[in-house]
Write a protein that binds this DNA or RNA. Structure first.
Lengths: 134, 134
DNA sequence: ATAACAATTGAACAATTATTCAATTGTTGG
DNA sequence: CCAACAATTGAATAATTGTTCAATTGTTAT
């Protein structure tokens, strides 16, 4: 949770004045204001963070990559990743909620696939990043 | 942690046979084998996941975006995000370890900036994804 | 040298979250 | 209708992790 530092959270230390000055002397006020103006709105940032976070779990990462190759059912994915159907199902729900995957019912089986091509691009861009240097 | 499901982890339920059959009947063995062959190696997956995970914290997301606009010192960032220098410093370390940001010393101040352009691309691709539908 | 201060670091705490197990839902075939 | 089974769901547990506070490091100016 974001908490303001400038407000007196050092009241009890007895050296309030020094502490407060310290908070601001090195700040380039003009620069900070300029960047602040150009920042994306808070909720956009939250959604970006959430998207990355969802892609940032190894199990989900693998599910996404597998689905970029082929449409698969829950059982296929569980077998592929050597984990339980339950674990896969839980993670698929997260991916569904973020609209990263879509599904198609066929009898009692449900086939999952990627929701759109952006996710593929994101993935490839990330791959390029990690494969690039050294 | 990945744990095999096929091995008898239902031994005590007394209905082992049924359970085991259930694990495999719906699996398209051929398809799974084909996907498995085309999957990236385990350590690549881990690094991709880790990269996304690091980008997936709101504080870090904002730091990254801010640095894509301008080179900033720790104090600037803390002011911009209304948080403590300590919190920012901790997160910058994470970003440094992942080689997502680089820094430059000038006196007792340290200026941070993005390490390469890939991160910008990743970010823009993600923005396009969240801004696209509805 | 010493005071001032930007930045880092470590430990502790609180919160989030991935997996497991068990139970349930919904669909198909006998 | 009932048995079989693919998939989902909820609760509990264990592990990870972000922030805070306090202390420390390293640099500059007096």
């Amino acid at each position: 949770m974001a908490v303001s530092t400038k407000t007196g959270n050092r009241e009890r230390s007895g050296r309030r004045r020094t502490a407060e000055i310290c908070e601001t002397t090195c700040v380039d006020v003009r620069k900070v204001a300029s960047v602040k103006k150009r920042m994306k709105p808070e909720d956009s940032m939250q959604r970006i963070a959430e998207t990355f976070r969802v892609l940032g779990d190894p199990t989900r990462t693998k599910i996404i990559y597998a689905l970029s190759l082929e449409e698969l059912c829950v059982c296929d994915i569980a077998t592929l990743l050597t984990t339980t159907r339950s674990a896969v199902s839980h993670q698929l729900r997260v991916l569904r909620n973020m609209r990263l995957v879509k599904y198609r019912k066929e009898g009692k089986m449900i086939f999952y696939s990627l929701d759109d091509e952006h996710i593929n691009h994101l993935f490839n861009e990330c791959l390029r990043h990690i494969e690039e240097d050294e």
